[in-house]
Design a protein around this nucleic acid. Structure first.
Length: 476
DNA sequence: GGGTGGCATTGATAA
DNA sequence: CATATCAATGCCACCT
């Protein structure tokens, strides 16, 4: 079921940075008569009338901005797809989740005991303020950095303090365990509905870059990097007996988009040869053959690649790698020597934002950046990074959304029983009967790889598993 | 005193 | 002093 016109989505495309979508405000913005506020019959009727009148106004505005096809061919069809994904939900093994909760609870109590024992008294370990009193007051540890309100106790600080005070390691453990239990066990459990499934909400008008977001619960930030947290994924299972989960994710989508936009020869070459992009970057930056790239060189190159997508500064890179600012500056210098097209692209985007007031993605999605003219350096620099990052992140979002629309059309027509469950920015998760996997693979990977034609191939990797933890590479 | 709302801090994902 | 989100807890102001 696909609605014909959604005024909020129209307003979002016209300015994805907005945070309110009240009809009263949109009416004012698009030159309609003032709508009374409140819940009186007059106000309610006024809003209904204004919404009707808004449609042609929004439609013209979309056409004038070159956003009509993005609206009509991608965002509107996506509305029904997301609605169905939400209604479908993803099955969760309640028993396994509760068991994880009990184990975490035990470990939390043990770690807590150990900490209180060594400190000599109990306090609220969850309070950064009380923790700071213990660490920097009683124990006399050095303050590494400050927040607005006092000494910081974030993970970066604690990791440094752990070098001289082993107890701090336990505090880090405590934080990890409490995060897992609070957000991912106690947070998810009450959201399991009577059908044994969790039904998230995908928000289509929140992210200024064009991405989706997920809330209540957020299923786009289920742990994966750290093994302890990754285990949470075991509780997400197929909802039908004998079925499996199937996931397809774009490989290095954002760097491929950079290659496309910048036309940088070395970057294009790397993807056309399907090279490991971080190894190739290391080889370029450190001036060695790819075979001689060490793990440490690759790690640093990877940080540079991520930094580039975000509009890195030498300061930010230095912090990410734990090196000096001078050294970081050298890396960036050498990177731009090797990838001059990327440097030119970045400068061009900032210039474009200054001249036009906005930047755009491949499909014309735009983001206004009025702060590009700010007098305050930090504010202006923030806008400059957004000018660089938004076309990259937003084009990746365009691609994925276009693929979702194509995939769901074909899936509906195919007679396959497989169902799309989740989107995690560069990844789609399905549940499917195993016998459908070869057909599902062809359909999904094919549509994702051909969603748009860039100057480099798009690569999609597929995985299959009996839960979201045990996903193994899949090729038919 | 209890309830509520907002800000600050922290940390999870995209990898 | 890296891009974009969402959410938990603590803490404080405010209200009744």
């Amino acid at each position: 079921p696909e609605p014909a016109f959604d005024g909020a989505i129209a307003a979002y495309l016209l300015n994805p940075g907005r945070t309110v979508y009240r009809i009263e405000d949109l009416a004012r913005e698009f030159g309609l008569p003032e709508v009374p506020e409140g819940e009186t019959p007059g106000a309610v009727a006024g809003r209904a009338g204004a919404l009707l009148a808004l449609r042609p106004a929004l439609e013209s505005a979309l056409r004038e901005a070159g956003l009509w096809s993005l609206f009509a061919e991608i965002e509107m069809p996506l509305v029904g797809i997301l609605a169905r994904m939400e209604a479908t939900g993803i099955a969760v093994q309640r028993e396994a989740l509760e068991e994880m909760g009990r184990e975490l609870e035990e470990r939390i109590l043990a770690v807590q005991q150990e900490i209180f024992q060594r400190v000599g008294y109990t306090f609220n370990l969850n309070s950064p303020k009380q923790l700071a009193d213990v660490l920097f007051g009683k124990m006399g540890l050095p303050v590494i950095k400050r927040t607005k309100t006092g000494p910081s106790t974030d993970a970066e600080v604690l990791e440094e303090l752990a070098l001289q005070e082993p107890l701090v390691e336990r505090i880090l453990d405590y934080r990890t365990l409490v995060k897992l239990k609070g957000t991912y066990v106690d947070g998810l459990a009450p959201l399991i509905e009577a059908d044994g499934r969790i039904h998230t909400t995908f928000n289509q008008t929140v992210a200024a870059t064009g991405r989706l977001s997920s809330a209540d619960p957020n299923l786009q930030n289920i742990p994966i990097r750290i093994e302890e947290g990754r285990r949470i994924r075991k509780v997400f299972i197929p909802g039908e007996p004998g079925w499996v989960l199937f996931a397809a994710d774009y490989s290095q989508i954002e760097l491929r988009v950079v290659a496309h936009f910048s036309g940088d020869e070395a970057l294009l070459d790397a993807f056309r040869q399907d090279q490991d992009i971080h190894t190739r970057t290391a080889a370029e930056v450190f001036g060695v053959p790819m075979e001689e790239v060490t793990p440490e060189m690759r790690r640093r190159a990877k940080a540079v690649n991520f930094g580039l997508i975000y509009g890195q500064s030498d300061y930010g890179l230095a912090r990410a790698l734990g090196i000096g600012r001078g050294e970081a500056k050298e890396f960036i210098q050498r990177y731009f020597d090797r990838y001059p097209g990327v440097k030119a692209y970045m400068e061009q985007k900032v210039q474009e934002a200054r001249e036009k007031g906005y930047v755009t993605t491949l499909l014309g999605r735009r983001r206004f950046l009025p702060e590009i003219h700010a007098r305050t350096f930090a504010v202006r620099q923030n806008a400059e990074r957004a000018a660089i990052n938004t076309p990259i992140q937003g084009t990746a979002a365009d691609l994925m959304k276009k693929a979702m629309v194509a995939i769901c059309r074909r899936l509906d027509a195919s007679g396959l029983r497989a169902r799309l469950l989740l989107q995690v920015h560069d990844e789609l998760v399905f549940e499917a009967p195993p016998e459908e996997l070869p057909a599902l693979y062809e359909l999904v990977v094919g549509e994702m790889e051909r969603a748009l034609t860039l100057r480099v191939p798009l690569k999609v990797e597929a995985k299959v598993g009996r839960n979201w933890y045990e996903m193994e590479p899949y090729t038919p």
